[in-house]
Design a protein around this nucleic acid. Structure first.
Length: 954
DNA sequence: TGAATTCTAGC
DNA sequence: TTGCTAGAATTCAT
């Protein structure tokens, strides 16, 4: 039997098509024999095509999800739509396809039924509740602008086979999501079937190897196997007495079904006789299960590229289906993959001078106005070169640079700008305001009336995003590009990309462009528009108050802290650098002496060579490039190599590491001491997904404290001139207190109310002894566990950290949870709730979206679960100290104190105490920090004072 | 030159 | 196989 013997129907029936490709000019289907090297798409990342069998997947969902739980208030059953949509979102997220199509069966009148009247006959009639949902699935797809392809007389699988074949020739990687096993014949190196294991959320990747492992044949042979064995769901009976094992064996022995047929008379036994008896049936099965891969479709794979979906339509459809959680998940997971700019900004830039400046600002920027500042900033200061203002009435550019400005703003104009900037009743919007505010202040132009910051708004909407670059946000939320749109009438200029380069859209100003005004004005206009859109999105996410009352006021507080900086003892730092450097070379020489050669002790690669080859030490834990040489592993090795040459090397190596780390830190600090003798860090307000701040240039949130040597670095942070001392105030065990509050666990709450040492109290409960009898070993176990719980620590992790057996660690956890069941219930509940809503929330309603909670990938899912455990705790602690910072800053001003806040280190504030204010300041700080939140446990604050950060520590 | 990797400091 | 960061050094691809 050859291919030509197999029945092939006429491909002339109607086709139908919806979605963006319906409008596309359609090329004839690509010739599957064309040379893929000539035809493949570009040099870019390899395109990925996702093909979904809509009917099959929705049908699976229909039976997987209980209809009772999925119906709208109007009684429409939605379980199939829900399951299908959920599956689609997950696959779009996890596989990130560039092209997508969903194929549907049109009816049962297929060429297969024409050949074999009983085809799929055994099936129960399609339930009406399911049939009614197919149009809804198509509505969802239309809103997402995903192409739907159908072909009269054929099944979805034939459409998929045709598109997959084209895609293969075009160099695509293809994923086929279907519950129909016939599709397995399409699997090859470039084509993977995602086959539902159970329901529709658990998809198995059927690669060539996976198919072979499961069925014993390569994918191309799968239909041969199915023809022999039969396919119940299609009502295609196989050879009685022949199962997959026998069939696979035959196919292997005779090189496929053709060979089996040719050798049919030689096959012995009962099964052989059965085969001979049912040979016609097998051949018919084989004709029917062959997918048609050369249908004439109105779309080619290139027409299936993902496009930006119709936001309003998505909202309308999801609203009508009452899919709140799914919609959130959709936006949370796929916003990043939602591009397609439709244009730029048509901005005309006014350049008023003299009295016209005030007039322009009054007329055009009386209401909400956006600012884009050009200039330099950082290290707590800066200076501006220019300012673009965009109001409802248009945009203007004010050059504010110094002498090199060709057409500077006159004094009268500058005064008008200054007055407008300082007027709190003129509402202003900036993107990432802190730096620009410092620059304006540095140029003598203080700003009041900041009512929105688009970077902060976007951060609160989706705190997990890596960057809040204005151009990205404009693309994502406004579907526009950050460029000047030439007015339609002046279309004389060709739309040449090079022309746009001259506009300096990066907004840094002078260097690349003679006129910074248009780019700055475009940015200001974009910020103004973005502000409105993000306000809506943030309100939907319940974050408006968080922005207005916490993050936005904090911008000014942080700017002032950065401007103040903290005084540094340069001489002390220099002395430390010298000492640490001496230790570094000393230890390095000693290490070289042991191994009799010089290596780079800072190179993990060379260290591995020394440790595991030259010195023959036992292998440590693996990492990507070999075996780890981290401090923990080296400490292990030290124990194992006691009193050998190797142990001497290890000791030297560890000492060298410590010293060079300290030297590095000191060097970094020295480089950042400003001319005023102070170190001005920069706080990042939109980096940490939990809501914490971070600190850069330099990072003052990781200054050593744990070791004696390290603490000497803290002696270099000193009280500045005109002040009496430094005061540090920190929350003790704030995360555990928040856990007590959030969980409401009676035991833990009591622990904090009792005033007893937390870990001893908890330890006495867990080990069932008096608090006084809790040994240091017991206490440290409890401490590790308590903190680990808030991070999602496993019994395995606990055992590793405490160097105890896994069973012992598990027992410890069981005992803990038995005594503190509220904690366990809370931790479970928080993950469940996050899975339902799609996000976690802090005590102030700060959300973190965790779409991976429903990922099919176990590693990603479990990671998301640990994030869900930790985010409310770490994030609430961040909320609390931010409230405290606002309170402290406000109270200092209200009470007219000269003392000032300098640093924040997550649960600690460092202040500079003005002469005579120590006591009143301490009271103020305790009051503001202690009262920053009303929890069911007290917020304990400990305070220390000294002339250096080290001395003030406690 | 830049990305990826490893290691370590803090909370 | 415990969360959130910043940053330096090395290595390797470009």
């Amino acid at each position: 039997m050859t291919d030509s013997d197999l029945l092939r129907p006429d491909a002339a029936a109607d086709t139908s098509l919806t979605g963006p490709a319906a409008d596309a000019l359609v090329d004839p289907p690509a010739d599957p024999l064309a040379d893929p090297r000539l035809d493949a798409v570009g040099d870019g990342p390899r395109p990925r095509l996702l093909l979904v069998d809509g009917h099959s997947m929705a049908y699976r969902a229909f039976f997987a999800l209980p209809a009772d739980n999925f119906s709208t208030s109007t009684g429409q059953v939605t379980n199939a739509v829900y399951g299908f949509t959920s599956m689609l979102i997950n696959v779009l997220r996890d596989e990130a396809p560039t092209h997508v199509a969903v194929a549907f069966d049109v009816s049962r009148q297929t060429f297969r039924a024409a050949e074999y009247a009983e085809y799929k006959a055994g099936r129960a009639k399609t339930p009406t509740e399911f049939a009614g949902q197919v149009p809804l699935v198509k509505e969802v797809l239309a809103a997402l602008r995903i192409t739907v392809v159908e072909k009269e007389g054929y099944e979805a699988d034939d459409v998929i086979a045709t598109l997959a074949t084209q895609a293969r020739a075009r160099g695509f990687e293809t994923l086929v999501s279907t519950g129909d096993r016939d599709a397995l014949q399409l699997v090859d190196e470039a084509t993977t079937v995602l086959y539902p294991r159970k329901g529709v959320s658990d998809l198995v990747r059927m690669t060539p190897d996976a198919v072979e492992e499961k069925y014993g044949v390569r994918p191309a042979r799968y239909p041969d196997l199915a023809a022999l064995v039969g396919e119940t769901s299609d009502n295609l009976p196989g050879v009685p007495g022949v199962g997959p094992k026998t069939a696979a064996k035959w196919l292997a022995t005779h090189d496929g079904l053709e060979g089996v047929v040719a050798a049919v008379d030689t096959i012995s036994g009962k099964a052989g006789a059965s085969l001979r008896e049912h040979l016609d049936q097998v051949l018919r099965n084989r004709r029917l299960n062959r997918l048609v891969a050369d249908l004439d479709l109105p779309v080619g794979v290139d027409d299936l590229a993902l496009v930006a979906w119709d936001r309003e339509e998505v909202h309308r459809v999801f609203d009508s289906l009452e899919f709140r959680v799914l919609r959130d998940r959709l936006f949370a997971t796929l916003q990043a993959a939602e591009p397609e700019a439709e244009g730029g900004f048509a901005v005309e830039v006014a350049r008023p001078r003299g009295a016209d400046v005030a007039a322009w600002l009054d007329a055009r920027a009386a209401g909400r106005a956006a600012l884009h500042v050009t200039g330099r900033w950082g290290g707590g200061t800066g200076e501006v070169t220019g300012l673009a203002v965009a109001g409802e009435g248009g945009a203007a550019w004010f050059p504010l640079g110094g002498d090199d400005e060709p057409d500077p703003l006159d004094d009268e104009g500058r005064a008008a700008v200054a007055a407008w900037l300082a007027d709190a009743d003129r509402p202003k919007v900036l993107h990432d305001a802190k730096g620009p505010l410092l620059a304006l202040a540095g140029s003598g132009l203080p700003v009041a009336g900041l009512v929105d910051d688009t970077a902060l708004a976007a951060y609160l909407c989706r705190p997990d995003q890596r960057s809040f670059d204005l151009a990205d946000l404009v693309l994502r939320h406004l579907h526009r590009e950050l460029r000047l749109e030439e007015p339609a009438g002046e279309a004389a200029a060709p739309a040449d990309a090079d022309d746009q380069l001259a506009l300096d859209v990066d907004g840094t100003g002078a260097a690349t462009t003679p006129d910074p005004a248009p780019a700055a004005a475009v940015r200001a206009a974009a910020v103004l528009e973005l502000s409105g859109v993000l306000a809506g999105e943030l309100a939907e996410r319940g974050g408006s108050a968080l922005l207005a009352e916490l993050e936005l006021p904090l911008v000014g507080v942080l700017a002032r802290m950065e401007r103040r900086g903290v005084a540094a003892d340069r001489a002390h730092l220099e002395a430390l650098e010298e000492q640490f450097a001496a230790t570094v070379s000393e230890q390095a020489e000693a290490a070289y002496a042991v191994i009799d050669r010089r290596v780079n002790l800072g190179s993990p690669k060379q260290l591995q060579e020394v440790l595991f080859e030259q010195l023959g030490m036992p292998k440590t834990k693996r990492n990507k490039t070999g075996y780890t040489t981290d401090a923990e592993a080296l400490a292990d090795l030290l124990v194992k190599t006691e009193d050998t040459e190797g142990s001497e090397f290890l000791v030297r190596l560890l000492a060298h590491r410590d010293a060079s780390r300290l030297r590095q830190t000191v060097e970094g600090l020295l480089k950042t001491v400003a001319p005023d003798g102070r170190i001005h860090t920069t706080y990042q307000q939109t980096i940490a997904a939990t809501g914490r701040l971070s600190s850069t240039d330099p990072n003052l949130q990781n200054i050593p404290i744990r070791t004696e040597e390290g603490r000497r670095i803290r002696q270099a942070f000193v009280v500045g001139e005109g002040y009496e001392s430094l005061l540090t105030a920190d929350y003790s065990q704030i995360e555990m207190r928040i856990m007590a509050h959030l969980s409401g666990d009676e035991g833990l709450v009591e622990a904090f109310r009792s005033g007893e040492d937390l870990h001893s109290f908890v330890g006495s409960r867990v080990f069932e002894v008096e608090p006084a009898e809790v040994t240091p070993a017991m206490r440290s176990k409890i401490k590790a566990m308590s903190y680990g719980l808030a991070y999602g620590l496993s019994a395995f992790g606990l055992s590793r950290q405490l160097r105890i057996a896994v069973d012992e660690a598990r027992g410890l956890m069981d005992d803990y949870f038995e005594r503190f069941g509220g904690v366990r219930d809370y931790l479970r509940g928080v993950v469940d709730a996050a899975r339902t809503t799609g996000y976690t929330e802090t005590i102030l309603g700060r959300r973190r979206y965790l779409p991976d909670l429903t990922s099919d990938n176990r590693q990603r899912r479990e990671m998301a679960e640990r994030m869900a455990l930790n985010a409310p705790i770490q994030g609430s602690a961040a909320d609390v100290i931010k409230v405290a910072m606002l309170g402290v800053e406000r109270a200092l001003a209200e009470e007219g104190l000269r003392s000032r806040m300098l640093l924040q280190v997550h649960d600690e504030l460092v202040l500079e105490v003005a002469p005579g204010e120590r006591e009143v300041l301490e009271a103020l700080v305790r009051r503001e920090m202690g009262g920053a939140a009303e929890l069911s446990v007290p917020l304990d604050v400990s305070v220390g004072v000294g002339t250096s950060w080290h001395e003030a520590g406690h």
